[in-house]
């Protein structure tokens, strides 16, 4: 039996549920793998797990928010033959990565300012949180399985990969970034393939009743499909909601926020630029009040924008 460990960092549990819900596929895997650690599902103490000198496959979920999570992730990773980074928090920082523009104390203050702070003692003896990062910032994994939680394409590929690894001892085909190497837009059931996409303006979701057939961008609604890797079966779009970009960039290392800003700029009112002119275009773009939250919802921590912020504040 091979040893499989699932190690959570700062998680929501969505990746746990995604894995645990695989039922039969998971049972297939358990013919080859013994789960030596998975705190949500298996009752094994961390101290016992840490006695193992090596494990075959480590699946890491979640981001890194404390010194201890970082230490544990590094320690366990160094004993693992294959390291899988599962879910967009682990791979890209995910939604909590939106906080990476701030210092931990500012994040704490967002709560403290709203409640009754009973005692103020500057000599805090509690361990301090470290600046939030992705697992991929501290360890170099062998397999990246993005998504929030990982979509069906990614999970299928991951299970195939792990089964093959159990049978052959080799990681083949060696895919670093799971999912299909194309944009979600490419195979979108709504994609108007024959024409170039034209956004009639910018419409926030509260302004419209979403049409359940038409390309969201053509409704003026921001959809991250063009800049997002195909990791799912268009689940949100089929539920009549635009893609929010949980799959991350089409290629590892690309800044999907910036590439999508580019696509929106290309598509916005292309048919009317010469009549609405700069003022008209600016008026529409000004309706986007949160560029970071729209374009970088899951990937801010890995972006050039994050690096620029760090440069700006001198870190």
């Amino acid at each position: 039996m091979l040893k499989l460990a699932v190690l959570p960092g700062a998680i929501c549990g969505g990746c746990d549920v995604a894995l645990a819900s695989l039922g039969e596929r998971l049972a297939d895997l358990l013919r080859y793998y013994e789960i030596v650690y998975w705190p949500t599902v298996v009752d094994r103490k961390l101290t016992d797990f840490l006695k193992l000198s090596s494990i075959d496959v480590l699946v890491h979920m979640g981001g890194i928010s404390t010194e201890e999570e970082a230490k544990l992730a590094r320690e366990v990773s160094s004993r693992a033959r294959v390291k899988v980074s599962l879910g967009s928090c682990s791979v890209y920082g995910g939604i909590p990565g939106l906080n990476s523009l701030y210092k931990p104390i500012e994040v704490y203050e967002a709560i403290a300012s709203q409640v009754d702070v009973r005692s103020k003692n500057s000599d805090l003896e509690l361990p301090r949180p470290i600046e939030y990062s992705a697992y991929t910032d501290i360890v170099e994994p062998d397999v990246l399985a993005p998504g929030c939680p990982p979509g069906s394409i990614v999970l299928d590929q991951l299970f195939d990969l792990l089964l093959k690894y159990a049978e052959t001892g080799r990681l083949e085909p060696r895919i670093l970034l799971l999912g299909d190497p194309e944009s979600l837009c490419n195979k979108c059931p709504r994609n108007p393939k024959t024409t170039k996409i034209t956004m009639p303006g910018i419409r926030r979701i509260f302004e419209v009743k979403l049409d359940d057939n038409k390309c969201f961008l053509e409704q003026g609604v921001l959809c991250m499909g063009p800049a997002t890797r195909a990791i799912c079966d268009h689940s949100c779009i089929k539920a009549n909601y635009p893609c929010t970009g949980c799959g991350g960039p089409i290629e590892w290392g690309v800044d999907s926020g910036l590439s999508h800003m580019s696509s929106v700029a290309s598509a916005l009112m292309v048919d009317r630029e010469k009549s609405v002119l700069e003022a008209g275009l600016a008026r529409e773009l000004d309706k986007i009040r949160d560029v970071t939250g729209i374009f970088y919802r899951y990937t801010l921590r890995k972006s050039l924008t994050y690096k620029l912020r760090k440069l700006r504040v001198g870190e």
Binding site: A10, E68, P96, N99, V107, I111, R204
Partner: peptide
Amino acid sequence: MEFRGFEKLSVGRH
């Protein structure tokens, strides 16, 4: 034992 800070990251969002 961890901390993700949704109160902070919610600020500024649509």
